[in-house]
Nucleic acid binder design. Sequence first.
DNA 1: CGGATATGCTTTACCAGTAAAACACCTGTT
DNA 2: AACAGGTGTTTTACTGGTAAAGCATATCCG
Lengths: 204, 204
Amino acid sequence: MTARNGRPARTGAVGAEAARERTPGAGGVPGAASGTAHDDTVAGVVRQWRAVHPDLDTAPMEIIGRINRCAALFQQAEDAPLRRAGLSRPEFDLLGALRRTGRELTPSELARETFSSGAAVTKRLKQLTERGLVERRGDPRDRRVAHVRLTDAGRALVDGVLPEQLAYERAALSGLDGEGQGELAALLGELLGRLEGRPGALRI
Amino acid sequence: MTARNGRPARTGAVGAEAARERTPGAGGVPGAASGTAHDDTVAGVVRQWRAVHPDLDTAPMEIIGRINRCAALFQQAEDAPLRRAGLSRPEFDLLGALRRTGRELTPSELARETFSSGAAVTKRLKQLTERGLVERRGDPRDRRVAHVRLTDAGRALVDGVLPEQLAYERAALSGLDGEGQGELAALLGELLGRLEGRPGALRI
DNA sequence: CGGATATGCTTTACCAGTAAAACACCTGTT
DNA sequence: AACAGGTGTTTTACTGGTAAAGCATATCCG
């Protein structure tokens, strides 16, 4: 990750990951009917930090660590259906941007839509073009710019993969009931809205 | 990201990113005193997908897209204090694992703790050793294994950076009030607990 | 004991991303 | 018209990750 784009590259929390050995069925109270049946790894990491630095307020880790860890697990899961379609996630992001906007996009627009660097978009476009999933067209007015669009094959690929992706995501979220999902979406939306609303807010 | 570790590499949601041009102060209802004052990019992306695929249930994107996007923004922010200390996030993760466990760890334990591949740990250890932040010691019983520990300098570095990290995180979360933060942490904890509790749940 | 197999770690070959420079083209100014 | 400077895209050099192969060592079992 650079200053230029906003992509998560690591799972880190605040260095906050513990992959405690899962010994399924051993050691835990067999979960009650409802409630917090399982313990997550982040809780363990935070506990460790608190033991070593009892004076520090570790509350932010409980959120940021979990967000990072969730993102990691989701992405791992989502990779599967994509790989089957022969796509990496960045490639799918690019195709998806074209599909959902429903129009041609220039490389720089694609970079903005996918939060990637221009150079990365260039590379991906090269491959996707070779595979016949996108096409490029020059701009007659301004010969610097290119216009990229999905081919029929590219469009079909996206439309084929998308429902699968969503099914995976739904399955991944099924640990939360409908109400919990709604609350979570709302809270994240509020947080994200404020983060994005003040572009400088994070750079301090 | 591979099957081997669980690190988020992209921001993707379901290819769900829109970097709508921020035209601050234009177009939006000037936010009411409280509530969802800002709109986030994920909402826009989901709207685009719904317009193109009205039949698809896009609800999962609202959560997963936001989790990914938040992770991206947080990590971007957290990179700053680390870079000042001359560390990358994976390096800090490794040092942090040693610090918070408070004991020597083997390379494979470090790989598990930081969700990285063994090869990546080897590389990082090489650099951190050269910089004098960690030390290695062979195991007399089993000469295959190494034991890694923080040097005084490494420990001091972690302890110096950690409060800064936490301050950044606290600032980043300040868009949410205390209650919201608590709820968010709880919801994420529940989701994450279930995701991690059933190792196969995500692979389907 | 001694070979087969497993384990811990490192090496190798490679790939995708980045930052910065390079390139090509446009636009405003004089 | 000519040039300075800006913008859109690609290229270059490099970095850090991965998968898979490669050692060295331990362990199992006849």
